[in-house]
Simulated scan of single mutants.
Amino acid sequence: MAPVPAAPDAPPTANPAGVALARVYALFPAAIRLSCGIAVAAVALAVREPPVQAVPLALAVVVLTIWSYVFYRQTIDNGIRARVVLVDAALTITACLAMEVLVAPAVMPGGVSWVAVLASTSIVTAQFALRVVHGMLLGLTIAAAYCVGAILAHDVDEAISHSAVLVAQTFLAAGLVYVTRRSARAADSVFSAYQRAHRETVIARAAREAERKQNRDLHDTVLSTLTMVGLGGVAGQSAMLRARASSDLRTLFDPARRPALDPTAKVSLDERLRVVVERFEGYPLTAALEPCLVPSAVADALAESADAALSNVVRHAENAVAWLRLHRTRGAVVVEVIDVGPGFDMAAIPPYRYGIRESIMARMAAVGATARIDTAPGNGTRIQLEWVDVG
Rank of each mutant, 00 (worst) to 15 (best):
A366P: 09
E386K: 04
P12N: 08
V19T: 13
S268W: 06
G18E: 10
A260D: 14
T180Q: 12
V276A: 07
T94N: 07
L176V: 14
A308H: 11
A129M: 10
S305K: 01
L166N: 11
P16S: 09
V62C: 12
D270F: 00
A366M: 06
R315D: 14
L252P: 08
F28V: 15
D262P: 07
Q74Y: 05
R182E: 13
V390N: 14
L27E: 05
A322V: 08
P50Q: 12
Q214E: 05
A287H: 02
D88P: 06
V165D: 12
R353S: 14
P263K: 04
A41R: 00
T180W: 03
R279T: 14
W114E: 09
A145V: 07
L138A: 04
A197F: 06
I76A: 09
V267K: 05
R212Q: 15
Q169S: 10
P16M: 10
M1P: 12
V294C: 02
A174H: 01
V40H: 12
A303I: 00
R33M: 15
D270E: 12
A184M: 02
D262C: 07
L59N: 06
S183R: 11
L130D: 15
L45K: 00
V55Q: 02
V61W: 08
R199V: 09
A371E: 04
A332H: 00
T251L: 11
V229R: 05
T141Q: 05
G236N: 11
A168V: 13
L273I: 02
A104L: 06
R48K: 08
T381N: 12
A243P: 05
T125C: 05
P284F: 06
A42T: 13
P263T: 07
I360R: 04
V156D: 12
Y283G: 08
A104N: 07
L385N: 07
I360Q: 02
S359Q: 11
V115F: 00
P105Q: 04
S238L: 02
I123C: 11
I338D: 10
P342G: 09
A95V: 06
T13K: 03
V70P: 06
L152K: 07
A26E: 05
P291M: 02
L223A: 14
A22Q: 12
D339K: 03
V101R: 10
A260I: 04
A46L: 08
A243D: 13
D270W: 00
D389K: 01
A184G: 03
Y178H: 15
I349W: 08
I203M: 11
A150F: 09
A145H: 00
E336D: 11
A376V: 03
A265H: 11
V112L: 13
D9R: 05
V177Y: 01
D220M: 02
V234S: 05
D270H: 04
S68R: 00
R181V: 06
A347F: 02
I142C: 13
S224W: 00
A129H: 02
R363S: 10
S268L: 09
I76Q: 07
T264H: 14
P16A: 09
I373F: 13
E278H: 11
D188E: 03
R181P: 08
R33K: 07
